[in-house]
């Protein structure tokens, strides 16, 4: 009996505490609003003199800490927080090849306090191959900062010196060339590459960049499909690039041929973009794009990117939207052709 009474009291307490919690918070949040922005929030909106930013900003990164996308986000957070005078926190929200984090960005409120950095075309590949909660139009693309082509690399002591060796061997032994990748874009690149050189290859999926590198350098796979960022480490360990899927030779690696000059029309790469959920107030967008143009055209930012082996290319709000739309129309047919490889 005692126990039952006690449980009832406890249950009652739960309700009371919950109710108290909600009450005090309504008040608290109401007060905070009043204190911070004054009672004339609505007027402010109409006067188009929204104060932004008034508090800390967070940047969501849909990958784990330490990779290329994360590095870009952290450099940007540093530069942008100096420009805006507010603290900017980078939040890693990894999982399901970026899907979890990108969906979270799309869900968050379009007030300019939650931004996101991810490597395009991860979002586009995801939305076309899975049933995602976001689409290309879920985001306002504020700027793009780098342009990193995908490449094909051979391990140490590989018989494949050039692309011709590869084609020759591949035509004689269809399906016997193994190509490692770690991520949707890497796989897409392999499929498009094999298509265009007319050789049947076998893609091998790895769970992360580290495992992929280990298998390439240990000759457990013949080739690897990864971005130009891995170039230095692979070459240093005795491997070599076969070519980059870039429009022209990269300033950083002038010796590496592009597939285009080798006669294969293949361009594919990662471009880290800074996004906000669609529906950003015009004033906030104005503040952000101005700030981004300022830091984006500053040579200091370019230097920091290039020190980190990230090929810098700044595109402001209008340029990036146009660039991405053009790129979508190139990628879409490639994805559709190979859709069964993704969906199995």
């Amino acid at each position: 009996m005692k126990r039952i009474v006690f449980l009832l009291v406890l249950a009652l307490m739960l309700v009371v505490v919950a109710a108290c919690g909600s009450d005090t918070n309504q008040e608290a949040s109401g007060n905070a609003d009043e204190n911070q922005q004054g009672s004339n929030v609505e007027e402010n909106n109409q006067d188009s003199t929204v104060e932004y930013p008034t508090k800390n900003i967070q940047i969501i990164v849909p990958y784990s800490a330490g990779g290329g996308g994360d590095t870009v986000a952290r450099i940007l957070a540093d530069a942008l927080s100096e420009e805006l005078g507010k603290q900017i926190n980078v939040i890693n929200r990894e999982g399901a090849g970026g899907e979890i984090g990108i969906a979270e960005m799309a869900r968050s409120e379009a007030d300019g306090y939650t931004l996101g950095v991810f490597g395009y075309p991860d979002n586009f590949v995801l939305e076309n191959t899975r049933d995602t909660d976001f689409s290309f139009d879920s985001f306002e693309y504020l700027a793009a900062f780098d342009d990193m082509p995908m490449g094909i690399f051979a391990g140490p002591g590989s018989d494949f010196e050039t692309i011709e060796d590869l084609i020759e061997f591949g035509e004689a032994n269809p399906g016997s060339i193994t190509l490692g990748e770690s991520g949707a874009l890497g796989l897409l690149h392999i499929l498009a590459f094999s298509d265009i050189i007319g050789v049947q290859t076998t893609p091998v999926t790895f769970s992360g960049g580290g495992e992929l590198m280990n298998s390439l350098l240990g000759n457990h796979v013949d080739l690897a499909s990864t971005s130009s960022m891995s170039h230095d480490s692979i070459v240093d360990a005795g491997g070599h690039p076969i070519g980059f899927a870039a429009p022209e030779r990269m300033a950083m690696f002038p010796d590496v041929p592009t597939f285009k000059e080798l006669g294969f029309d293949l361009e594919m790469g990662v471009s880290r973009v800074l996004v906000a959920p669609t529906g950003l107030p015009e004033e906030v967008k104005e503040v952000l794009t101005t700030a981004l143009d300022n830091i984006g055209n500053d040579p200091a930012l370019k230097e920091r990117f290039e020190a980190a082996a990230l090929p810098y290319r700044y595109l402001g709000n209008e340029d990036v939207t146009e660039f991405l739309n053009r790129s979508n129309s190139v990628l879409e047919p490639v994805i559709q052709q190979n859709i069964d490889r993704f969906k199995n």
């Binding site: 406890l10 307490m13 739960l14 505490v17 919950a18 919690g21 909600s22 918070n25």
Partner: peptide, 25 residues
Amino acid sequence: ITYQLLTIFGFYISAFFLIMVVFFY
């Protein structure tokens, strides 16, 4: 219940609630 509160009221309020309840219990 704390998890439910967490999704509605955020971390600190839920933590406060959980500590109280567990302490009494």
